Simulated assay, not measured.
Amino acid sequence: MPGVGSFASSTDPETWADFETAVAYLERGRADGVGFVFTEEDPIVGVDLDDCRDPESGDVDDDAQDIITRLESYTEVSPSGTGYHVLIQGALPDRRNRRGKIECYDTARFFTVTGDRVTGTPTAVSQRQDALEAIHREYIAEESTQATDTLTGVTEHEESSSNTSLNDDTLLEKASNASNGAKFDRLWNGSTSGYDSNSEADMALCCLLAFWSGGDTAQMDQLFRQSGLIREKWDEVHYADGSTYGEKTIERAVERTSEFYEPRSKAEAETDTPTSDGDDVDNTRSRAYLVEKNRLLRERVNSLEASLDKRDERIEELEAEVARLTNVDTAQTGTSDVVDVDDDRRTEATNDETESETSSLWGRTKRLLGTDSE
């Protein structure tokens, strides 16, 4: 914190300073860097991309490059050299603000600014609301809600890679006849309507396939190759670990899908035996119960994440207060020594006065006794 030398708080404006003051403080060697605080009063949103850049070669992960290209705003290399900070003008969508190595902030946080702008990116902080919302949906928001809400046969499943015993034809028939079957049919036939990019449409279809296949990556890949969305990019290597675009898309889809279709029994799945009207009513009630339960669980998770964020903010505030008190105590050490010396002198003077009074009283007493004896 310029002028004080203690830690600043991202939630306490009293610990902030303007840019010129912060830079002057940095140039005097009093700090390691300058940070920008996001507040409710400014329209700035920060997108933090971690562990996506090779600091030696400068190679960038495909996902990070996709986000940087689509946001098309001021972008700089992070202090570690292994990530990026993108600054845009916009409003961060509600719900969660981070997933994996991607985080978005618009208040109560700060970015350390390096000034190491990425070549080819704008020098200005641009208005990119539409792109931000699309990227938030694709990379951060809970994709499982798009794939599983109101689907028939919804059930919780702890293992993301279990098989369902549904063959390809049965799976496609069930997906097409589900309550969101029209959406599945559009994607299956290659339509990207309603999506800002082909990649976002690819992810949406893969999330649906993940649900119906029980997270069977082999079956998902086999089916996607039959869809109208398949393109050459699917088999292109886009990642440092040698993974193709298709492999990573399927992997991310499975990770983001928290619920999977699970037949009541293997025999029923193979024969696809129709149920009676009574069974349909019971199944509808069960599905409604599970959908509501999943909604409540998601709200609880969001609430816990918000509580953790508040706890982190409180820890930062307490650490800043401890640092401030430590500095104050250090500054007052010399004064305390002087006070102690003065206190000792006053104590000695008081003791001398007390001894003098005691001697005088004793003398008067002896004289009084002597007079009596005479």
Rank of each mutant, 00 (worst) to 15 (best):
P2W: 02
S10M: 10
F19Y: 14
Y25H: 09
V34F: 02
P43N: 11
V47Y: 01
L49H: 01
S57V: 06
A64D: 04
Q65S: 13
T75W: 02
S78E: 00
G81H: 07
T82L: 03
G90H: 01
A91K: 14
P93Q: 07
R96C: 05
K101A: 09
G115W: 09
R117S: 09
T119K: 15
R128N: 07
Q129E: 13
D130W: 06
A131Y: 00
R137N: 09
E138D: 08
Y139S: 03
A147Y: 03
T148G: 02
N163T: 12
T164Q: 05
D169Q: 14
L171F: 04
A175T: 03
N180K: 15
G181N: 05
F184D: 03
D185E: 12
R186Q: 11
G190L: 05
T192K: 09
S197Y: 03
A201P: 01
L205Q: 00
S227H: 08
R231A: 14
W234G: 00
W234L: 07
H238D: 06
D241W: 06
S243T: 07
G246R: 00
K248D: 07
I250K: 01
E259V: 05
F260L: 07
A269S: 15
A269N: 11
T275W: 12
T275A: 13
D277I: 13
D279H: 07
N283D: 14
L290T: 14
V291W: 04
N302H: 12
S307L: 14
D309M: 08
K310Q: 14
E313S: 09
L318E: 09
A320C: 09
R324S: 06
L325M: 14
T326C: 08
A331G: 10
T333V: 11
S336Y: 11
V339C: 09
T354Q: 14
S356Y: 13
L369S: 11
S373F: 13
E374A: 11
